[in-house]
Design a protein around this nucleic acid. Structure first.
Length: 464
RNA sequence: GGCCAUGUAGCCAAGUGGUAAGGCAGAGGUCUGCAAAACCUCCAUCACGGGUUCGAUUCCCGUCGUGGCCUCCA
């Protein structure tokens, strides 16, 4: 599989550190507020990566963290008058529920900063001992950026460029403006832990270096996150990890970064008030629809979330789901058929091998759907058609799509009533009382129910 | 200001130095009592201006637009 490595800017072959195994670390959220669709998009991308690699037979260890100790949590907690860790736990619980509804795989390890303090302190000590960190009079520990000659190599900036525009704050104890905090001494009322430098808490960046090393080793395969994390977060992670390294001069082999989601052509931001939370999204659109939308563009590109695009994604899911679940006659005497050019497993694999080209992979699914429909209409061999349906379902599964129909089996309180109306309509049609039949259809339509007359009889489903 | 992306049909969105995947929407047709679904057909010359080339949407330069990062951010 080839993936674009942000570090080199080139497409690189994924060559696992340990053959047959892949370690992936993805930066998780800071749970100071509800998650939004941008977070969801990011995780959907890596979710598909993990699913695909596993489908291909690789043993994947997927690690993603929660930053539950952070300035934002402390500030928000103070404003709300609650303990920042409680706030984090509340938001994490909500987000985990939403992740499940989005069909996201659970990471194999889900570390939290608050439970990793010893690990983080240990790494910080190593960095200081190696001369890459220093302790100030007030008990803060900073990373000495100038000691790392290749600092900036991920974001392709040099220290001089970065220095422009920065300056020392009055009373700043930093040696150099770009130095960043590894450990922050505790202020009254803040969550704090013991350390060799007194009570305090970790800086933002050190956690990911410490946790990824603990669970994946000093060198691992893929580190992912949003484009906005390249600088300073990932840059600093690299500096820290390499400053503490014992055996490997390289931290992550491949750096993957997903593009940002815009809403109606604008950046989602609290100030504009256009942030779409995951909760809102799940209210309005199906998990498959959200996923299809995300996967319809390349993960590195910026996407624009519009109601129209979401409706299109939902309709696309319907098309795939229908084809995958459409009744196929048992007849196995029809002419044999197999997936056509562009709809074969090799096409699907080629697409995803090529820097996770999910858009192309989806095109394979749609071609397969068309072929299934054609084959059914043409009374082709039933076994062959069912095989194609199974393939479609399998590919969809690799992409994390469930293709569940919102059909008659969907739980609905008035199901019995709807069934009764449908029976009445069937009787009316048999009696050629089309006026009454159409009335019933209109009534059900008003209730969000769609009727289809098929050769197997009438059926209803929930309109999406 | 610096660094980096990006600009493809009504919308979303792939892609390639040799005249543009796929989805949604739309139009016509088949099927249907009518619909729905499905199937068939149709629907773009790739922001603009230069350059390189036998030939560019695809490479280079410039302009304009959009966005990201440079401070917290998926």
């Amino acid at each position: 599989m080839r993936l674009q490595n942000t570090m080199t800017g080139a497409l690189e072959e994924l060559v696992p550190v340990t053959p047959g195994k892949v370690g992936i670390y993805v930066c998780g959220v800071t749970p100071y507020d509800s998650a939004h669709v941008g977070h969801a998009m990011s995780l959907i991308v890596y979710d598909v990566l993990v699913r695909y690699l596993r489908w291909r037979g690789l043993e994947v260890t997927f690690v993603s963290n929660y930053t539950d100790v952070d300035d934002k949590l402390i500030d928000r907690g103070a404003a709300m008058g609650i303990d920042p860790l409680d706030l984090a736990n509340t938001n994490i619980a909500q987000w985990e529920d939403e992740q499940e509804r989005l069909g996201l795989l659970k990471p194999d390890v889900r570390p939290r900063v608050s439970l990793e303090i010893e690990n983080i302190v240990g790494m910080t000590e190593e960095i200081v001992a190696n001369g890459f960190g220093y302790v100030t009079a007030s008990g803060d520990v900073y990373f000495r950026v100038r000691a790392k000659s290749d600092y900036g190599k991920l974001s392709h900036r040099n220290i001089e460029d970065l220095r422009t525009g920065t300056r020392f704050e009055p009373g700043d104890e930093k040696e150099f403006p770009l130095d960043f905090a590894l450990w922050k001494s505790a202020k009254p009322g803040e969550p704090a832990w013991d350390s060799p430098w007194g009570k305090g808490r970790p800086g933002w960046h050190i956690e990911c270096s410490a946790m990824s090393r603990r669970y994946l080793g000093e060198r691992f395969d893929i580190h992912g996150g949003g484009l906005d994390l390249i600088f300073p977060h990932h840059e600093n992670e690299i500096a820290q990890a390499e400053a503490a390294a014992h055996t490997s001069p390289v931290f992550a082999n491949l750096w993957m970064h997903n593009g940002m989601v815009q809403r109606d052509g604008e950046k989602m931001s609290k100030s504009i008030g256009n942030v779409v939370s995951v909760g809102d999204a799940l209210e309005r659109w199906s998990p498959d629809g959200i996923r299809l939308y995300v996967l319809s563009s390349h993960y590195r590109s910026q996407t624009n979330l519009t109601d129209e695009a979401m409706a299109a994604a939902g309709a696309g899911v319907e098309r795939l789901a229908r084809a995958a679940t459409r009744d196929v006659p048992d007849d196995a005497t029809g002419a044999r058929i197999e997936p056509p050019e562009g709809a074969r497993e090799s096409d699907f694999i080629d697409a995803l091998e090529d820097d996770l080209d999910t858009s192309h992979a989806l095109a394979v699914l749609f071609r397969l759907a068309t072929e299934i429909n054609r084959a059914i209409d043409a009374h082709r061999n039933g076994d062959d058609i069912r095989a194609m349906q199974a393939t479609l379902g399998e590919f969809a599964g690799v992409l994390g799509l469930t293709l569940e129909q919102g059909g008659s089996d969907a739980p609905r309180e008035d199901a019995a009533e709807i069934d009764a109306l449908l029976l009445e309509r069937t009787a009316a049609r048999a009696a050629r009382d089309f006026k009454r039949a159409d009335e019933i259809r209109a009534e059900l339509d008003a209730r969000g129910i769609v009727i289809e007359d098929t050769t197997q009889g009438a059926r209803w489903s929930v309109k999406r």
